[in-house]
Design a protein around this nucleic acid. Structure first.
Length: 422
RNA sequence: GGAGAGAUGGCCGAGCGGCUUAAGGCGCACGCUUGGAAAGCGUGUGUACGUUAAUAGCGUACCGAGGGUUCGAAUCCCUCUCUCUCCGCCA
């Protein structure tokens, strides 16, 4: 959600930001609605003040046994006026909110121009890509050959875009989740959380998944949503709160299942478990002050990078361009892991600073000092990491010529003595 | 799933159509008092929007949420949400 006062102050800058995302200007329309809304509100408030005075007068007269009929007639006409004004204000508000709710966040000036991922900037590359003495296989070839990655059974159970893991690979997935959580909790100062994976409309709206992306998520028959990411419950946990400034930053992490309908990605990544309806992810969320959020964004991205570094998986950090930056984000770094089997860099983490965009939608604030006025917090979210995709990265980078997979050193403590899968 | 009881300011708690501009208490802040502290006394104490140069004033709204009745609603009616107690079922 946007600050209408910021828009009033500089409508041209607002429209310029939208243009960078390839959207039409809207400032003129919003300002006209805003003007109309304020006029109706002021007029309504006049009537409300009169109603208050009138009710008091009638009350006093009645106690004294006086005639109140003339005043009551005025009351009736007052109410008719108020209803009309209310309806007018509500109608304008409705239109303006409908538009505002669908407008993406303002972009950080550092975000480069560009229409799509081809314009993203490589910020740095870590690690050395392994030299293979054989042709590296893709993860699903390896997994299916091992008999531990089973799309046929998953299809029988649930349809396309699901997977069943067995034995060593199932263990490896669990080890990865455990390892990531332990790292963030033990070394990165995050608080481990267990959260619901079914959430309300409000939680989804506050984290900007609604109304625009309703078709990307699964909805239950009783009107709840399966979370597309733990960002939703973790961030929305502070909705409506006024936090003590001294308690910030809040750093939260959770390992959850995530559910995405993947509407619109028919035909993309159909093989393997790169793009599933259900996957595990360790999510990091930070709630902080406007002053600290930039530094927290860097810090959080480093936390995600550390996972890949400990696992020894080459990656590169991308600064997303305007056209590729998500709806709620002001600035996003993607981490792309090297997948030798695919011979490609693939997204494995996305760390975004939403600034006060989500905070406004969910009314999450903090009090800088005792007695000071509340201000909106800044919220950040990042994958640390997507477990399924990390599993893929481990398999492809640590594969051996015989189709077995060597367990990375960092995961050995979690593997119950299993050092090689297959 | 069944039966019942609730939801009032940071917290406790009264009010159940107009003498409420939400009593009273606790907490907190500031001041007076004191050698210092405690006690005591006094003053203040939320959020949003509008107005405004203003985080100053002033106005309006907010007593779980949303509707309704009324000249007037914390108070009456309807719907919903959540909490608590008991019963049933259950990992």
């Amino acid at each position: 959600m946007h600050d209408i006062r910021a828009l009033r102050a500089d409508p041209a800058a607002f429209d310029a930001d939208l243009a960078r995302r390839g959207l039409e200007p809207v400032a003129q329309r919003l300002l006209a609605w805003d003007e109309e809304r304020r006029q109706a509100q002021t007029a309504l408030q006049d009537r409300q003040a009169r109603r208050k005075a009138l009710a008091r007068e009638i009350g006093m007269l009645k106690r004294e046994g006086g005639d109140t009929s003339a005043l009551e007639v005025e009351g009736v006409s007052l109410r008719a006026q108020m209803e009309a004004l209310e309806e007018q204000a509500r109608a304008v508000e409705r239109e303006s909110t409908a538009l505002l709710a669908n407008l993406p966040n303002r972009l950080d000036p550092a975000v480069p121009d560009g229409p799509d991922e081809s314009a993203n900037e490589i910020r740095h590359v870590w690690g050395t890509r392994r030299e293979f003495t054989f042709t590296p296989k893709q993860h699903f070839e390896l997994g299916e050959a091992l008999g531990q990655m089973d799309f046929a059974t998953a299809g029988k159970l649930s349809g396309a875009r699901f997977v069943v893991l067995r034995a060593g690979l199932a263990r490896l997935a669990r080890a990865l989740g455990q390892f990531m959580l332990d790292l963030h909790v033990g070394e990165h100062d995050f608080v481990e959380m267990q959260v619901p994976v079914l959430v309300t409309d409000d939680a989804m709206y506050g984290t900007d998944k609604l109304p625009k992306f309703a078709d990307q998520s699964f909805r239950t028959e009783d009107g709840r949503w399966l979370i597309p990411t733990a960002e939703v419950p973790l961030t929305a946990s502070v909705a409506g709160d006024i936090l003590d400034g001294a308690s910030l930053p809040l750093r939260m992490t959770a390992l959850t299942q995530c559910f995405r309908s993947e509407a619109g990605s028919a035909g993309r990544d159909v093989r393997g478990m790169l793009r599933q309806h259900q996957f595990e992810k360790v999510e990091m969320v930070c709630v902080t002050t406007p002053e600290q959020s930039e530094a927290e964004h860097e810090r959080m991205t480093r936390c995600a990078e550390t996972v890949l570094e400990r696992l020894g998986i080459p990656y590169r950090r991308m600064l997303l361009c305007a056209g590729d930056t998500g709806f709620g984000a002001a600035k996003t770094f993607d981490l792309e892991a090297w997948l030798p089997g695919q011979d490609a860099w693939r997204e494995i983490s996305s760390c975004s600073n939403t600034r006060d965009f989500q905070a406004r939608r969910m009314n999450a604030r903090f009090r800088p000092q005792a007695g000071a006025a509340p201000a909106f917090v800044h919220t950040l979210n990042g994958s640390g990491l997507a477990v399924g995709r990390t599993l893929i990265a481990v398999m492809e980078n640590y594969q051996n010529e015989d189709g077995s997979i060597t367990v990375p050193d960092a995961l050995l403590p979690y593997m119950g003595g299993l050092a090689r899968i297959g």
